[in-house]
Design a protein around this nucleic acid. Structure first.
Length: 288
RNA sequence: GCAGGGAUGACGGAGUGGUCAAUCGUGCCUGACUGUAAAUCAGGUGGCUUAUGCCUACGGGGGUUCGAAACCCUCUCCCUGCA
């Protein structure tokens, strides 16, 4: 298994900057594990790496999805695996960086997804109530153990898959996982500053343009900040209110990310970023 | 100044004599998490403490009552009409 460096952390924690630094130092290329930067056109509000940054270090998994269509973990896994293989084949170090825990885990644990489901069936199941879904699952003789029976979406998935469960492997070998962490107050300040910067760079205009082009209800318009700024550019709320909302969205996201990453004890949390270089050096020496 | 309406927990907003520490929503805290994942779902959210317990709370003060967030008086502030 070729070496892989993974960088995780909360939004605005400084993951990308660290990833850039490591990539330049170790001859790496970045694979962005972020469920919003995959979308074309959604640049400013998603804090997508700039053209200049991409010039310095190759980035993968950006702009691979059409806003009108949508994206998911399976597509991510497929493309990311390919990217990792390509980077490795070129003799470069793949660095997987991002805050979308599920996407990261599809690589770390090589999730075995099941075949796609029939949209017609999905639509039908979605109209049913939870108790009916449960009795249907029982009638089908499905094993209900281990899944959250109060979460409708999970029960639907079980029915769609005919009771077959997706698989998961042991954690990928030769993988260094670095976690970037900051005190909450510092993180909040960084979020606020980043939002101000986005606004300066024309975030409102971007939202307006994208809303008009892809519709206000397209998938990535649900990304933090976009909804709030959609309200702003359509005159429903003030700029200050939209920024406040954006900040809260980011903080909520950060909380979810914290919860997700907390359960992975293989993550080496760094409060001092300068130690990252040593970590990677040691890691590469060990694996090569 | 006169008449009317209103002040409820972080916020919005129910509740008009007891079963109200107070419906619900939001926020917040904690957790789950495999084709929507920034999603979806679960639990918690006055204090002390873990007891069918006590204390503090529904703008301030006083009163009626066995008992009030709820009724009466009064004060303060806000809104609406008339001046």
């Amino acid at each position: 298994m070729p070496p892989l460096v993974v960088i995780v952390g909360e939004t605005a924690s400084g993951k990308s900057a660290l990833a850039m630094e490591l990539a330049e130092k170790f001859g790496g290329e970045l694979i962005c594990a972020d469920s919003w930067t995959v979308y074309k056109g959604f640049d400013i509000g998603t804090a997508k790496p700039t053209a200049a940054e991409r010039e310095r270090v190759p980035h993968h998994m950006l702009d691979v999805a059409d806003p009108a269509e949508g994206f998911n973990a399976v597509k991510f896994q497929r493309l990311a695996k390919q990217a990792i293989a390509d980077i490795t084949a070129r003799g470069k170090l793949p660095i997987l960086v991002g805050g979308t825990g599920l996407y990261i885990d599809t690589i770390l644990y090589d999730y075995g997804f099941l075949p796609p489901t029939d949209p017609t069936l999905r639509a039908k199941l979605n109209t049913m109530e939870l108790p009916d879904l449960l009795s249907r699952a029982e009638t089908m003789g499905l094993d209900l153990g281990g899944i959250d029976l109060r979460n409708k979406r999970r029960v639907i998935r079980l029915i769609e898959n005919n009771g077959i469960r997706p698989t998961k492997q042991a954690m990928r070998a030769n993988t260094l996982i670095i976690g970037v962490r900051r005190p909450l107050e510092e993180l909040r300040q960084r979020i606020v500053q980043r939002i101000d910067m986005m606004v300066e760079h024309g975030f409102a205009d971007e939202v307006k343009r994208l809303g008009e082009q892809y519709g206000w209800d397209c998938e990535p318009m649900r990304a933090p900040g976009y909804r709030a700024f959609a309200d702003y550019v359509q005159g429903r709320v003030t700029l200050a209110a939209a920024k406040e909302r954006f900040m809260l969205n980011d903080l909520q996201l950060a909380k979810k990310q914290r919860t997700w990453f907390k359960r992975n004890d293989s993550i080496q949390w760094l409060s001092d970023r300068s130690k990252a270089v040593d970590l990677v050096t040691t890691f590469l020496n060990k694996t090569n």
